[in-house]
């Protein structure tokens, strides 16, 4: 059993945070922290304290350093990418190649660049023989290359943003289409329900399926039939509910309820006239005549 207080005071956590432990001991500290919350909390406090101390020393680099460092880094990582993963490089747009070359050239010019920018005086003595014109031209070239690198970055950022926005727009448009379709379906159902001709037929479970409940909406003027399938019991595999209209004592096929029907009004086959509706269980695909027993039934009140 690990003595937690002793462990905390052993100085091991400080060694861990200062990075002086070999890998195996690092792993042991991580394991101890993972299984003892008190150790984890102490370790986090030690790490945060040292980070705070580091942050207290923050110094902004000279502004001119930004372009130098970023373009050198970009040049190095892109040459590394090009040599290890040429397929990745070729996904970039063609103008990038010229700019890459510029940036590479800039990186190679790195040895002389700081001198020309006046940051490091030492090598100037040897370059005094060069004509001032050439020096000015080099400076102009460097500035132009830095400008290219900067503009390339900006262009790349804008391009990425544009692609993202176009993707968003496509998604919104298709979401909108779906919503419109759903709204128009809901509206037509709503109109049907409010139509005074529509008869609502409550289906009640028979002794074969006492829990079964459903409602049929039947419009004798337009012959439209809908069923609200919410309350039908789950079916065994290979079976499907079929709706029948009973007209003058004879069953007429009113259509199959979709197997995956979960909610809402389901449009069924048009029926010219009916005095009652009934639901039976049939093999998937339906039957020409109903299979007894009837599961649920209701009469049309005229």
């Amino acid at each position: 059993m690990l003595n937690i207080q002793e462990y905390i005071e052993s100085g091991r956590l400080e060694q861990f945070a200062l990075g002086e432990l070999p890998a195996a001991e690092r792993a042991a500290v991580e394991a101890a922290a993972a299984s003892h919350p008190a150790i984890a909390a102490e370790l986090a406090a030690v790490v945060a304290a040292l980070e705070g101390y580091a942050l207290a020393h923050a110094v902004a680099p000279p502004p001119a350093m930004r372009a130098r460092v970023l373009s050198n880094v970009l040049a190095q990582i892109s040459t590394a990418d090009a040599s290890t993963d040429s397929g990745h490089a070729s996904t970039g747009p063609t103008p990038a190649i010229g700019l890459r070359a510029d940036i590479d050239a800039l990186a190679h010019a790195g040895a002389t660049a700081p001198t020309l920018l006046g940051q490091r005086p030492a090598p100037l003595a040897t370059s005094s023989a060069r004509s001032p014109l050439a020096l000015a031209a080099s400076v102009a070239l460097l500035l132009s290359l830095l400008g290219n690198a900067y503009l390339y970055n900006r262009w790349h950022e804008t391009d990425t943003t544009l692609v993202a926005l176009q993707g968003d727009q496509t998604r919104l448009a298709s979401a909108n289409t779906v919503l419109q379709r759903e709204a128009s379906a809901a509206q037509s159902q709503n109109e049907m329900l409010r139509d005074e001709h529509v008869r609502v037929v409550a289906l009640a479970g028979t002794p074969a399926a006492p829990q079964a409940r459903g409602r049929v909406f039947f419009d004798p003027s337009t012959h439209r039939v809908f069923i609200d399938a919410k309350q039908m019991p789950p079916l065994p595999a290979g079976k499907q509910y079929q709706l029948w209209a009973l007209h003058n004592g004879k069953p007429v096929d009113a259509g199959l309820m979709p197997l995956d029907a979960t909610s809402g009004l389901l449009p069924m086959k048009p029926i010219a006239a009916a005095q009652a509706f009934a639901v039976t269980i049939e093999p998937v695909g339906g039957s020409a005549t109903p299979t007894m027993p009837i599961q649920a039934m209701g009469t049309v009140v005229m």
Binding site: L55, H57, A58, A60, P61, V69, V73, H156, T160
Partner: peptide, 24 residues
Amino acid sequence: ERDETALSEFYDRYSAALYGVILR
């Protein structure tokens, strides 16, 4: 995602904190 433009944002946010430690 290897987004190279993220490097300039990284530089702007972290360079002072890192440079100070390096310089020290």
